[in-house]
């Protein structure tokens, strides 16, 4: 009886429901694009406000943006290395900002107040399509980074300490995007579900610590995603001796 009612309650959370957009033959998850456009729009507005009047003595928003820039540069430089980190810094930074803004936007903005005909708005990173897209971009990037930096010598990496490593390294090329996408997707979706269930069961006070935990997880996931992406690229461009 209890189990049954719990399931109905879960059902009220509308897990796995989507707002479908049909364009010709293709179908899209409309709620993912709606939230991502709102959040990225806010991000772009924030950034253009901060970079509108750049001064040598930074003030206000420029300070924050410079701190962010410095943070991303440190991340890229430590993982990728002094030589090529400049080429990849915008990509790593975009991943970080996109994931961070999506996670926090999903957690902080009360999307549920906006009613959709089907599905509900939430963090774009709680949709498997988004995280797989990001993870595949990372895979493409590290292949491109390795091949453009070392040419065919990139494949030495697969037999690097010994040729015995070859099957494992090939397997890694599949597990890397898989783990990247599922880690992010799972964490963010789980956070949304936990908060949703708690809000549904106990609407007062109790969900607040879980919400804070969710914010923490969201920030950590953004950092992990960007760091791992940078690490994979760094691994691909690293020179073995």
């Amino acid at each position: 009886m209890f189990f049954n009612s719990l399931l109905t309650n879960f059902a009220a959370l509308e897990v796995g429901q989507h707002l479908y957009w049909q364009i010709g033959n293709i179908r899209l998850h409309g709620q993912v694009f709606l939230t991502s456009w709102i959040l990225l729009g806010a991000l772009l507005v924030f950034i253009s406000l901060g970079t509108k009047k750049m001064e040598n003595d930074p003030k206000g928003l420029q300070n924050l943006l410079e701190f962010l820039w410095d943070y991303i540069r440190d991340l890229a430089r430590t993982q990728i290395g002094e030589k090529v980190y400049r080429d990849w810094m915008p990509f790593i930074g975009t991943l970080f900002l996109f994931v961070f803004v999506s996670n926090w936007g999903g957690a902080l903005i009360p999307w549920r107040l906006i009613k959709l005909p089907s599905g509900e708005l939430g963090a774009p990173t709680a949709d498997i399509n988004t995280t797989i897209a990001l993870a595949l971009l990372v895979s493409l990037s590290y292949f491109y980074a390795g091949l453009s930096n070392k040419g065919w010598r990139y494949f030495e990496y697969y037999v690097h300490p010994t040729p015995i490593m070859l099957p494992f390294k090939i397997l890694e090329d599949f597990t890397k995007p898989l783990s990247l996408s599922f880690r992010l997707f799972g964490n963010i979706l789980a956070d949304e579900l936990v908060v949703g269930v708690l809000v549904f069961l106990v609407p007062l006070i109790l969900p607040i610590p879980v919400m804070f935990l969710g914010l923490f997880t969201s920030a950590i996931q953004a950092l992990i995603f960007a760091t791992l992406a940078a690490y994979y690229i760094g691994e691909a461009v690293e020179e073995h001796h």
């Binding site: 990225l40 810094m89 975009t94």
Partner: peptide, 29 residues
């Protein structure tokens, strides 16, 4: 449910990379 959202999101992120590069990373850098 994996569908065309995936490639479109990938394109969107690539576009965002170029936009952020010219709007944020280059000037601030």
């Amino acid at each position: 449910d994996i569908n065309a959202t995936l490639p479109l999101m990938a394109i969107q992120v690539v576009a965002l990379t170029y936009i952020l590069n010219s709007l944020f990373f280059k000037p601030v850098g």
